[in-house]
Design a protein around this nucleic acid. Structure first.
Lengths: 102, 102
DNA sequence: TTAAGTATATAGGATATCCGATATATATAA
DNA sequence: TTATATATATCGGATATCCTATATACTTAA
């Protein structure tokens, strides 16, 4: 039962949508920009098979929309619904991890 | 493809082990104490089928050990290995969620 | 007009998290 | 002693995340 690795206790599974909404709340971005920013933050870059289905699901949920499309490059931005979802998630996140960052 | 709920964008899946290690770094606790503290923080209490397998896996990984056992009540505490894993995870967590709490 | 680089897309599947249901053991109260 | 509450334990499975591999389309350079 190898649930935790050598020095790993946290794979952050389930936080991808939250992180994408957070990044888009700073500025509109396209898929590769988001993947690169996540690479800088987490240390590993999500693969195409990870990032694009996630964007699709968030769009399907009404949390983001295509702001601009130039060639194959699609820039996404938050919808009001996405901003609300992010706000709610932030509150929960803050309460849950109170004291972790200090 | 219902990946995100009505206003939910973040189920925090994959953070349970990290949270348990963090709580135990504050003080030794037993399973129910941990579950109750998580209930206060996240808003919902992890079920027995969630918390005990998680503790078992963290123990199996060498991140925590039984400090005391009185009746059925088992108090857990971090091992040096667990402290190191928590430290590493904290650094990654901090870098990943930089700017979310502010 | 090739060739190479960039960006997006999706199917299929491996893997892991987490929960519901259930069982057991201990402690306490009636 | 019976009943109740508390704490731990595990199986089986539903569910979701994420990756690998593959394909497509657009852009730019040679």
């Amino acid at each position: 039962m190898p649930r935790y690795g050598d020095e790993e206790c946290c794979d952050m599974r389930g936080m991808l949508g939250f992180l994408i909404l957070f990044l888009l709340s700073k500025k509109p971005m396209h898929g590769q920009e988001i993947a690169d920013e996540l690479a800088k933050r987490r240390g590993d870059k999500p693969s195409p098979g990870t990032i694009y289905p996630a964007l699709k699901s968030l769009k399907y949920a009404g949390f983001l929309r295509e702001e601009e499309k130039v060639g194959k490059t699609i820039t996404y931005c938050l919808t009001p619904r996405g901003m609300k979802a992010l706000h709610i998630a932030k509150r929960r996140f803050t309460r849950t991890f109170l004291g972790v960052l200090s």
